[in-house]
Design a protein around this nucleic acid. Structure first.
Lengths: 236, 236
DNA sequence: ACCTGAACACCGTTCAAGT
DNA sequence: ACCTGAACACCGTTCAAGT
């Protein structure tokens, strides 16, 4: 009822620092994620970091899901808000890039996507920016939502796959399974993959985010019949 | 060394059925995932399903990651291979749809992406099909890889977000946090999102995979300078 | 109000032993 | 070769109790 999460951060007592606060918890969680990577962030590990009992955490945070949400919140809130270009089309690109930027700072993105979605309070201004730019480009409200969703899917997928890749490169205990699969390829059945096998790591480690994003946007601008039945913009 | 995973399934003894086999394990795992959803698939739960000790599993499967890979393998191997259209452009769409289809059958996609990538043996023919079609469309090898990657990112992101959505709708203990966030929106700061708030669930539950995919492909066909520096197709 | 201790119901995986 | 039992080092979370 008074879950207090969406709006302001809530009242802050001024008495003594009271040791443990939501802010301190988030900061410690951030530190763990940054230094040991996502996956090391457990409630118990976090409690150890703060030299408290695991259960003390639950007094400031509902559960692990809320903790992850709060981490994303802080990233989104602290994201610098660069001036937006005047040209609508460029503004759309810039807004999409903003979404990429905030998610790129979240190594726990996979867990966020697995348990929540991106509609968390402090992210909304980024989504709003995408919608605004899309509308300024002449899209209808519904088309703008479709465009936002396509951008979010593309961005989320790219980051997730990139994060996984980097995690693997970091660990590199055993060379990835992919290498064995590629090595066992037969030219008769997989001619193009065989031709590419040696270049695959190099080709797939490139950052092609912007190229793909531009293509996606370009496609939306090109097709006049983007979403099938042109429903009216504001249904009753 | 003789890890035997990429190639054939390996020799099969004919003596007695020997009770436990990799096939039986995979089948049971599939059953658990289908009936109780991903997340219920633990080694211990799987052992219970098969009425054996958890450790018996490790005699047929290296670890949980390999199990997930094998699940994806089976899905990919059993994916029907529809006849491909003659037109290269349509073939590209069909191949991309194939990738979507195989991943759509994997509720454990999130865990796959978190620990492996999609380059598992039986998936390769789908990737090969995408590359083939892209080359037939006139793209260079490198451009084809970029195109494949964009498709994979878009597809992975879409499915992951859709899976999460459905999981939430299934559980629906507490209404999603998103609802609270949307309700607390202020029209001054988020006018377009406010205007959309009521329609958001309906708009975001639509299946817009094909529309977005078409836009993405369209964009790649439109831009002549897709990937910046036009490197030669086959470097030494 | 804020924190602790003990407990519940789980995990993946290793190691030594059984047949 | 194939499986079991016991153990290790973890999880998130609840519940009752302390101050």
């Amino acid at each position: 009822m008074r879950s207090s999460e969406p709006g302001t951060t809530g009242r802050r007592r001024v008495g003594r620092p009271s040791q443990l606060s939501q802010e301190a918890i988030i900061e410690a969680a951030q530190r763990i994620v940054d230094e040991e990577g996502d996956g090391s962030l457990s409630m118990r590990r976090l409690a150890r970091e703060l030299s408290i009992t695991p259960m003390a955490l639950y007094h400031h945070v509902r559960d692990r899901d809320q903790l992850l949400r709060l981490l994303l919140e802080t990233k989104a809130r602290n994201l610098p808000r660069p001036p937006m270009p005047d040209d609508p089309r460029e503004r759309l690109t810039a807004a999409a890039q903003l979404l990429y930027d905030v998610l790129a700072e979240c190594p726990f993105l996979g867990e966020i996507l697995a348990s929540e979605d991106l509609m968390t309070a402090s992210c909304l201004w980024v989504i709003e920016a995408v919608l605004e730019a899309a509308l300024a480009c002449g899209f209808t409200l519904e088309e703008a939502v479709g465009l936002y969703r396509a951008i979010a899917h593309y961005t989320g997928g790219e980051l997730l796959i990139r994060l996984t890749r980097e995690r693997h490169l970091a660990h590199l205990d055993h060379p990835p399974y992919r290498a064995r699969a590629l090595a066992a390829l037969q030219p008769q059945t997989h001619p193009r993959l065989c031709a590419l096998a040696d270049h695959w790591p190099a080709l797939t480690s490139r950052d092609t985010h912007r190229a793909g994003l531009q293509a996606l946007l370009e496609g939306f601008f090109q097709s006049p019949d983007r979403s099938g039945p042109q429903a009216p913009a504001a249904p009753a």
